[in-house]
Amino acid sequence: MREISLGQYYPTGSLIHKLDPRTKLLITIAYIVMIFFIDTFVGFGLVFIGLMATVLISKIPVTKILKSLKAIIFLLVFTVLMTLLFYGGDKSEVVLSWWIFTFYKQQLIDCGLIACRLFFMVLGPTMLTFTTTPVQLTDGMQSLLKPLALIKVPVHLLAIIMSITLRFIPSLSEETDKIINAQKSRCADFESGNIFKRAKAMIPILIPLLTSSIRRAEELACAMDSRCFKDAKNRTRMNKLKFGWFDPVCLILFCALFFVVLWLKFNFLPFVDLTSLGWIV
């Protein structure tokens, strides 16, 4: 629980870790959009190659990444089952017929595509959180959202609020543990009874937690004031975000991948006709 504010950050000091968080954020957002454009296995194959390259460069152990994907296995199986059971698409080619089940070619293809889409959808942002600390993410977001300051959105303040929130999650979780233990030692019962009883039993935890959070907030405000905090706007940063040589390389490579994906989808190049290459679609 104490590690929570570092998320699942896995430091290896690789080139991917050293990328500017803005580059990583932009690529991740565009990547999610891109996934929706892919409807061929060739497309997913390309994304897979791209992601594998990222994983290799990032030096994060593959087992570590697979472990973090455990959570979506249920979702994946559930979605695939749903598509298999309730299929209403093209039923021209029967592949397998057994008992009351009939599987069609297009049905299996759709299933595979949906599974791929889900898998890749989760894998991309996972790589972002593996290689970027929450603080870097906050900095990156603040910098990317700068234009919003023009319409008077307090971007700087939001960034500070976010980083303080991240900072206090472990402290408050530690405090919750302490309060639970204190109440337990006075014979409070949190484990038995129906859901209403249990919810009611939480009150002696929530109220001390609330009061202590308010007290903490007050002390923090004092400490921030005495360390010359005026407003978020005129602050400078120690670690300025800087684009290195690897940032444009990554952006260009990603753009190329996106271009190919769009081409596979819309077949807009006049000199090569994808429909003639039947195996791709």
């Binding site: 600390t133 500070i160 980083s163 303080i164 991240l166 002390e219 923090l220 400490a223």
Partner: peptide, 12 residues
């Protein structure tokens, strides 16, 4: 101040 936990603003 007294409580070091309540005067830190950053995780690093």
């Amino acid at each position: 101040f007294q409580n070091p936990d309540n005067q830190m603003v950053a995780t690093i």
